[in-house]
Design a protein around this nucleic acid. Sequence first.
DNA 1: GTGAAAGCGCTAACAG
DNA 2: CTGTTAGCGCTTTCAC
Lengths: 345, 345
Amino acid sequence: MHQQPATARRVTIVDVARQAGVSTTAVSKVLRDAYGTSPHMRSRVRAAVDELGYRPSAAARALRGRTWTLGVMLPDVRNPFFADILDGVGEHLDDTEYQLFMTSGCNDATSEARVTEAMIDRSMDGLILIAPVSPPAHLDRLARTVPTVVIGRHSHSPRFDTVNDDDFTGAGLMVAHLAGLGHHRIAHIEHHETDRIRLAEMPNALRADGYRHAMHQHGLGEHIDIASTTYTRDGGYHGARILLDRKNPPTAIFAGADVVALGVLDALTEAGLSVPGDVSVAGYDNITLAGFRAISLTSVDQAGHRIGSTAARLLLERITDHTRPAAQVKLSPTAVVRGTTGPPR
Amino acid sequence: MHQQPATARRVTIVDVARQAGVSTTAVSKVLRDAYGTSPHMRSRVRAAVDELGYRPSAAARALRGRTWTLGVMLPDVRNPFFADILDGVGEHLDDTEYQLFMTSGCNDATSEARVTEAMIDRSMDGLILIAPVSPPAHLDRLARTVPTVVIGRHSHSPRFDTVNDDDFTGAGLMVAHLAGLGHHRIAHIEHHETDRIRLAEMPNALRADGYRHAMHQHGLGEHIDIASTTYTRDGGYHGARILLDRKNPPTAIFAGADVVALGVLDALTEAGLSVPGDVSVAGYDNITLAGFRAISLTSVDQAGHRIGSTAARLLLERITDHTRPAAQVKLSPTAVVRGTTGPPR
DNA sequence: GTGAAAGCGCTAACAG
DNA sequence: CTGTTAGCGCTTTCAC
C-alpha cells in the first residue's frame, strides 16, 4: 500500500498484541486457529482485533505462510460461458477465507506465461487455468511450483487436476438431435487447430471428433462437412458463408461454440434465410444469451457452474494436501433444445 | 507460494547478487532503475538475472515499496460493457510493469467492502472501481488509503478521480433520435433507485433525468412514461410487460441499458409484436452484442474503451503523485442507430 | 499454554 | 558509485 502523509498507520499484529496484553505469537496463533491457545487468550485477542479493526497484511503473510489468494486465468471476459464457471468457483469459495482474483485477455502462450508468472510472483496459493493454450510441459512446470487446476483441457498430468465436460459425447448429443429431426446434411464449424498436442487435448478438437464419430454412427458419414475457422463470432460468420456456398449446402449447422452460432445467425440473416425454416442452427456451451427469447439457440449445456465449483474444491484439496494424486473429473453435457432447430424442409 | 518437497527453491535477490558479484542493494537498484548504478554493474546484474531466471517477489516488495499490482472491481462479468472498459485499461497498462487483477460479483455495499479490503490487504498500488454502490463516505475513506479511480459514478470527491460518460446527454440523444422518427409515446425503463445520494450520483438516475428533460424539450412532456425495474434482462422483460399493459402503450421503448433492451425484445417477441414495426426499441451502452446482425440494437455508445484507458492513465498519475488534485473526466456519448428503431406505424 | 527471537525477500538510509 | 545495515509484518521454531 502507499504511505499516506502520516495519516492512520495501518494496524499491525504488534498493536493487537499490545492492546490484548499478549505476545504477537499469541495473536498469530489465534488468527490461524493454531494449536496452543487458551479460551481466555482467544477472547482477549478477538476483542482487540475487533476494536482496532486489525486486518492481517497478505504481503507479510506471504513471506512465511499462505496469502489466502487464488488466481483464475480467463482467456476472455466476453465469453459468457466463463462467467458460469466463475460463479461456481465463487460459490464454493464463499465460505472460506480465500479471495479470488482473475486476469483476462490471455489468448496466446506468451501472455499466459506472463500472467501465470505474475500470479506466482504474488505468492498466490493456487491457480485455476481456464482453457489454457500453453504447451503441456509448461503447465506441468507451473503445477510443480503452485497447486493448479486446469479447466477445459483434456490432459493427464500427474501434477495438476483437470475438470472437463465430455466434449466428444456432447457433440454426439447434438448430432443425434439433428439427425432425429430428419437432417442429413449436418455441417460443423470447428476451431482450426494445427498443434499436434493440442489436437488431442483441446475441447474444440474433441467436439469435431465427436461430430465425425456421431455422423458415422447415424449413417451420415458421406455428409460430413466441416468448415474450419475460429471460435469467434467472425469465425461463425465466415464458416457459414463457406458452407452456404457449397453445391449442396447443409440443412443444419452445428457450431462448435455458441459465439460461433451467433455469427452463423448473422450470416443467415444477411443471406435472407430463415431459422430454423431454411437452416437449423445449434451451438455449444449454452451461454446465458442462448436462452434469450430473441435468440433461443439450441445448444449443449456444459454445466459451467458445476465445473467451477468442482475446480475450486479440487484446488483447495490440493492446497491442503500436495501429495494427493491428480484427479481428472469429466462431467456430462446435456442437449438443450430451443427455437433454432427444427425439421428440414 | 507453497513450498514443494525441497524442489527448486525460488531464486532470490541474494542469489543474483552472488552470481553477479555485487551487493543485493546493487541488484535492487538496477531492477528499479534507481539512481547510482554504473553501466558495468547494470550489465553484470542483468546477465545474472537472465541466467538465473530471477523474478522479484511481489510479497517481499510489498513490505517496503510497491507491488506493481492494480485491482479492478467489477460488479458483474456478464455485462459486456465492462469488458470494453477492461480492454481500455489493459491497453494502457501493457507498456508498464503493472499487472491487473480483477474481482467480480460485487453487487452490494457489503461485498464491495469485502473486496476492497481484500485488495488493500494485498497491498495493491491502486484501485479502479467500476460502478460501485458503496456510500460516498466509504469511497472517500478508501481513497485516503490507496490511490483510487471511480468509473460510472458522478461523484465530486477531492480524494479520487472519476471517469464518466455524460449519461444525461446520452439519454437526450436517444430521445431526440426517436422523436425525430416521429414517435410521441416514448417510454423509458429505469433502474429503481431509492437511496438519496445514489440518486444524484448513479448513471441510471441521470439517464432517467436526461430522458425526462429531453421529453419536455421536444414538447412530449405529457407522454413521459417510466417503468421502474432493474438493469437486468429480467428487469427489461417485466418493464416491457408493464408498458405494454398501458391503456395507450408506447410506440418506442428506450431502455436504460442494453441488457434491459434485450429483455424488452424477449417480451415483444413473446407478445407477437414486431420490431421496429410495432414498437421501436433502444438501449444504452452499445455492448458488442448490440452489433450482432441477429439483434441489431439501436443504442448509445459510451466509448467504454476510452473510459478504461483514461481511468488507467489517471490512476498511474495518482500513484506517482498523491497530491495532484482530483480530476473529473466526462466523456461524450454518441447514438448508434441500428435496426430496432424506425418510424411509428 | 505462552512468548522471545530468528528470518522470509526486499528496499531505504546511511556510510564509505 | 557501492555496500552494510536495519527493518517492513508476519509465522515459526524452541525454550520456558
